[in-house]
Amino acid sequence: MKLLKVMLSAFIFYLSFIYGASAMAQDLSQQNKQLLANFANEVFVKKDLTNLQEYLHDDYIQHNPIVPQGLSGFKQFFADWFKAVPDWQYRLEKIVAEGDTVWAYGVYSGTQQGDWLGIPSTGKHYSIHAVDIFRIENGKLAEHWDVIDTYGLFKQLGVIQ
């Protein structure tokens, strides 16, 4: 009987530990999803780059070779994009989080009215899909990878046939 009580207590402890760890992981994933949703809304929907330090580490690592490194590189790249595409829009479709990693699927669109990425103004509208992957560290975006439809972008802008 004593052995049964010990085994039952151990099993209850195990379940409590597993449930607690799972709940903590879910809380972290939810926090990270909310961080990315807030970031996307402020930066990509409102095109407001004034509070980037609240979202990105100064030494933010960028794995897209056309975007410069760090918070300042991010800020310059998107300021240039917003200027070249005054009607720039972003629609966030889905966010998925696991641990310190958050994936966002969205659509970037607008009309290129100014020079951008070495491409003279085309006056053409584009709409492209992208998956952005972020690693979060200490409540801020620390690292970024993306999968973006650059072929579709360049085709819509008339850069390629």
Rank of each mutant, 00 (worst) to 15 (best):
K124H: 11
N138E: 14
L36F: 15
M7Q: 08
M24W: 12
L4V: 13
H57I: 05
A23K: 14
G123F: 01
D146R: 11
V43D: 03
E93R: 08
E93W: 03
F82A: 05
E54P: 00
K2P: 00
H129Y: 05
L28Q: 15
I12C: 06
S127A: 15
G73E: 06
H125P: 02
S109F: 03
H144L: 02
D87F: 06
S72I: 11
S16D: 00
D59L: 04
D59S: 07
L52N: 00
F154L: 15
L15A: 14
I133N: 06
W103T: 03
F154P: 00
D59T: 04
D149Y: 01
F134E: 01
A104Y: 00
S127P: 01
T122A: 10
S9A: 14
D27S: 15
V159L: 04
K124E: 09
F74Q: 04
V147E: 13
F39P: 05
V45E: 11
G106V: 03
V85W: 04
G123P: 07
Q53F: 08
A130V: 08
G114F: 13
F74H: 10
T111W: 03
Q62T: 02
M24T: 09
G99D: 15
S127N: 08
P120R: 12
Q113S: 15
D27Q: 15
E54N: 13
I95R: 10
H125I: 00
D58K: 12
T101V: 09
Q76W: 03
V102H: 00
L36D: 10
A84G: 10
K75C: 05
F13M: 14
D87R: 04
F44N: 04
G158T: 07
A40F: 13
L3C: 06
L4D: 09
